[in-house]
Design a protein around this nucleic acid. Structure first.
Lengths: 161, 161
DNA sequence: TATGAAAGAACCTGGCC
DNA sequence: GGCCAGGTTCTTTCATA
């Protein structure tokens, strides 16, 4: 799908505030409200915008601790096996198979360190898991709303570019 | 702040669909539309809900590649130094200082592997960075909308509990 | 093909109970 | 927390370039 500058600006505005009115967005990007709505509808249908979500503060909800866990699995473990197993844990916020020594990397949110420990214990007990290697998060430095930036043809990076 | 079951359900509904009407949410949780609005206003003011954001498909926008990068820094590097530096890169989606050998872990989204390489090169060239260790994501298994789950007093985890 | 304007329907918002 | 009224926003249609 082809995205022009208007589409990118609209997406940017909606990532900033998904409840902005079409009129507000239109004023910001230089379109009428109805033109904005048509583009948003099109972007949703095309799959560029997959939905609208509330941003919640993990701390305020009691998720004060997070950790990253590397998973080392048995040779014949498939990605879907891992996906199936870890998706059963609500504490697993994200998971991916990766290159390098470990087979997968999990991102875990929990209520406290004890809770992290308990979850890791259970995951380590999954039949395909050989061993795990965990890192507790000390302080979060960056946490961009998923997909806030939009790739340009060039110059995505800092000034040095 | 104290959250009851209704608050949790409302947050859950808004994480699912931030553009759901108050009436729809109310029907789902068993409240009138205005009661839902009052609670949402309160949850926003209390900081439990920090905003509303469009979910975008990184693929659809051209971000087809992601990587995790461990940062090993000079002894006297402060977290804020790292934060200041890496937040200048739009490709850095998340960053945190962690326990273990590495000092920080970055999550990077880029348009392709070449782009990932370029960004890592630049970050490695930051004055406080001693070395980096990168893992390219092969396939994403889980990607929960930030804060989709809400901690209960017990039984957050799979059946085994 | 994409835009702006307009009208009716749906929704939000605040006051009141 | 529910109900209601006034103001706003959404959604669709129509005309236009």
């Amino acid at each position: 799908m082809e995205l022009d500058r208007l589409d990118r600006d609209i997406i940017g505005a909606l990532v900033e505030d998904a409840r902005a009115t079409y009129a507000e967005i239109g004023q910001h990007v230089g379109l009428s409200a109805s033109a904005v709505k048509r583009r948003v509808d099109r972007l949703r249908q095309a799959g560029a915008i997959t939905g609208f979500s509330a941003r919640v503060s993990p701390q305020a909800l009691g998720w004060t601790t997070e950790a990253y866990v590397e998973l080392f699995c048995q040779g014949k473990t498939s990605p879907s096996d891992i996906a199936l197993a870890v998706s059963r844990y609500p504490e697993v916020v994200s998971a991916a198979t990766i290159t390098g020594e470990a087979d997968a990397l999990l991102h875990i949110r929990a209520t406290d360190v004890r809770h992290v420990e308990r979850v890791i214990e259970r995951i380590a007990a999954e039949p395909f898991v050989v061993r795990t290697k965990s890192s507790i998060v000390l302080s979060r430095l960056v946490d961009a709303p998923a997909g806030s930036a939009v790739p340009e043809t060039r110059n995505e990076s800092p000034v040095a570019g």
